[in-house]
């Protein structure tokens, strides 16, 4: 099935946000997923045509990034962080329990069952929430401090169509709706949920309790310059990690 006229217009709208249209490709593919439920050949063709590149080019990009799916994703995408910190804190046990409970393996989707929403289960990498380990993601919303029991409850609620809220965010929308936001078409949920979860606030809480603050703005210790030349800066930087900006050549000084 070809994409609707409305979708084609929106795809072009995305490309137009950038000085060079091809920059729109990642968000465009998010939009394709939101209307098609996955990356389809039609979606690839449409992107290629709008950007004036080949379908093979688009395909090459779509296969590079893990959020793009060739197989249909369920109503909800459920991720379990099994990177080391979360795995150790219980992510492995949670992932195992969910595979059993849902009867699916990694990157598989539950069968259509009457009256139930479908779920795609996947183990994911560190999602920048390690202070809330073990962490799960429901359609890329944070579900913090999970246990095998709360994980089972979560997927049961999602399947039954009960409203589920992120522990640090809004109610969970469908995967397709989420993909639309990632394409740069915001929904109206930005104001839902708290500013920060409890772990994000522990240091601040201790500082408040003990009356600790940053120095008074009048404080002036003079220059903090640590390197005067590029060479010095390079020596001081963690070059192993950041060659990019540190291995500056003398010629472009």
């Amino acid at each position: 099935m070809t994409l609707s006229e409305e979708t084609l217009v929106e795809l072009k709208e995305i490309a137009a946000r950038y000085p060079e249209p091809r920059s729109g490709l990642l968000p465009m593919l998010h939009l394709v997923q939101s209307v098609e439920g996955r990356i389809t050949p039609e979606g690839i063709e449409a992107c290629a045509e709008i950007l004036g590149i080949t379908a093979a080019d688009v395909s090459g990009v779509a296969t590079f990034y893990t959020m793009y799916k060739r197989r249909p994703v369920g109503d909800y995408h459920v991720g379990v962080c099994t990177n080391t910190l979360c795995a150790v804190m219980g992510g492995d046990a949670i992932f195992e329990r969910l595979q059993d409970h849902l009867g699916v393996g990694n990157d598989e989707t539950t069968d259509d069952a009457p009256g139930l929403r479908s779920i795609t289960l996947e183990h994911v990498e560190c999602n920048a929430a390690c202070d809330y380990a073990p962490v799960m993601m429901a359609n890329w919303e944070f579900m913090d401090n999970m246990t095998p029991e709360s994980a089972v409850q979560l997927v049961d609620d999602l399947r039954a169509g009960n409203e589920v809220r992120s522990t640090r965010g809004p109610r969970i929308v469908t995967w397709r709706e989420a993909e639309r936001v990632l394409a740069g078409f915001p929904d109206d949920l930005a104001d839902d949920g708290p500013a920060a979860g409890p772990a994000s606030l522990v240091g601040l809480g201790i500082a408040r309790e003990r009356g600790w603050t940053a120095p008074h703005p009048e404080t002036d210790s003079g220059s903090g310059r640590t390197a005067d030349t590029k060479q010095e800066a390079v020596e001081q930087a963690d070059t192993a990690r950041a060659e990019t900006e540190t291995k500056q050549e003398d010629s472009d000084a």
Binding site: A195, A196, A207, A214
Partner: peptide, 21 residues
């Protein structure tokens, strides 16, 4: 000697609706 913790970037995270303009 500055305090042990010096909230600057995190200082407003506990504010009501901190994310709003």
């Amino acid at each position: 000697m500055p305090d042990t913790l010096t909230p600057v970037l995190t200082d407003n995270w506990g504010d009501d609706r901190a994310w709003t303009l």
